[in-house]
Design a protein around this nucleic acid. Structure first.
Lengths: 142, 142
DNA sequence: TGTGATATGTTATAACATAACAAATTGAAG
DNA sequence: CTTCAATTTGTTATGTTATAACATATCACA
């Protein structure tokens, strides 16, 4: 189990590469429509084009969807082709929007145990914490 | 940390009670608009009325939002006023839509540990597994 | 009883996502 | 090669989820 089962990754299409680059330029998660706006000059015109590219990038494990924000981030764990890392956790700062991505094998094991015991066959798991990051907590009430 | 910090719970307003009842009637998570449709006869007319009621019900810990479905469920852990249960996990069947809700103190502890170590102050955490429930896994490819 | 604060009703619109179909591309069979 | 079915890509249209903004009503209390 991971954030999503991963598919072996062929060459990226032009749109997929553009969307991945655009997402990589963003410090924080971006919505499909924000990406579309970034990429109009590059020839993308419709939401479908972005969503289709994102679907593939997620399938290849290069991008994560942040469910609670309806938006997307590049996977922080750059990986050799075919390398499937484990369950990913997001810590999302509600003040500055920054997202920390980290791995939690212990959490993954625990959820796997429950699944086995209950006959549930998990395909993907999302763990998202909201709160205040250390920088914002320290900030002078700006 | 819990699915959300809980607020002491006053009397429910009429709309809040109606939304809670409607949600309780549903076997599976329901969207705000589905609830609105259920409640037109009861006098609800606009999405805001439903969303406002849901916001309060969530604040009181009576309802959970399922982020990955953009929908809502009544909390399975009926609780005495003010009782805050721990972190909640959802196991969502992508075949039949059924959702299992359970508690995972071990997962909660693990995430708390990370948060402490990283100066993150969590306010709410969502854990959602997608997959196939035991009944659907057993089903004759219906 | 006036008045400020809070809650509710309502309209309008924003933001996110996918259905449906047309056009182009690709690649295997003849 | 060339044809044609399968897949991918482009595009329009529409569906779904969520909130802004403002009007109206209700309530607590001076």
């Amino acid at each position: 189990m991971s954030t999503a089962a991963k598919t072996p990754q062929p060459e990226l299409t032009k749109h997929q590469a553009l969307v991945l680059q655009a997402l990589a330029r963003e410090a924080n998660p971006a919505s499909a429509y924000a990406l579309l706006d970034q990429l109009r000059d590059e020839g993308l015109r419709a939401p479908q084009q972005v969503y289709r590219a994102l679907d593939k990038l997620i399938e290849y494990g290069l991008v994560h969807r942040v469910e609670s924000l309806n938006s997307f981030v590049v996977c922080a764990h750059t990986h050799a082709e075919g390398h499937d890392h484990g369950l990913v956790v997001f810590a999302i700062c509600d003040t500055c929007g920054q997202v920390d991505e980290f791995l939690e094998p212990a959490v993954e094991r625990r959820l796997k145990t429950w699944s086995k015991a209950n006959g549930f066959r998990p395909s993907s798991t999302h763990v998202e914490m909201h709160g205040i990051c250390s920088r914002c907590a320290a900030a002078p009430a700006a």
